[in-house]
Amino acid sequence: MTQEKTNVELNALATVNDPVIEIKELYKSFGTNEVLKGVNLTVKKGENLVILGKSGSGKSITIKCIVGLMGIDKGEIKVFGSDITKMDNSELNKIRVRIGFLFQNAALYDSMSVRENLGFTLMRHAKDLTAEEVENQIKEILESVGLSEAIDKMPSELSGGMRKRIGLARTLILKPEIILYDEPTTGLDTITSREISELVLEIQKKYKTSSIIITHDMACAKHTSDRLMILKDGVIHAEGTYDELEKSDDEWVRSFFI
């Protein structure tokens, strides 16, 4: 355990070229339903990786495994060089504060205002901050997602696009190095989807984050991706840039781009 902790600390000093996420031979099943049958993927520092696939292909499960929300059957998931599948909860939590996760429906805490949603996480991880510093950080993050005026609103008063932005703000408040987006534009109109996609790019530039973006929205995939992967039958079926996959010889791969 001491060795693992030392590894975590050492890996914080990882060089720019090192992959931040490395998944090898990931298997996950639910009863007799084998969802992931040997997924291999790598995310480099500063890269936006988009994962495409049919509904139920295991895209969301893959990113949930990365943050330890789901256990795995077999395989290896290295985040910042440390295998999270072998960590206990306190070690995993040290990794989790460096990863942001945007849920499909933003998962804002219903009983808390926007200010409380953001402060709840921050105050538990930055205990040395004064109330004024917390307030300033909340305002700064809300400004960066363009929703300063929503600070006193309850989640029920927000539109779908606003919820996504506040969800992103809550994620950003801990200054994560990796962000995992679970269908960031689902359920939004074309204009708002475009705005969210632009926000994803802005965040990548401003905060130097690496990301995995799960999406069905090809406009979002085109706009945000440095690289794409397509999941089929529990494995990565195709990999490349948007342009490469759009011109793929595989008809099934091309069908995503029509």
Binding site: K64, L69, N93, F103, A107, D110, R124, R170
Partner: peptide, 17 residues
Amino acid sequence: GSMKVTEQIDAMEVSAI
């Protein structure tokens, strides 16, 4: 139950809370 269904409990967990 509603927090579980709307992934609010998961959101706490991934925030290391």
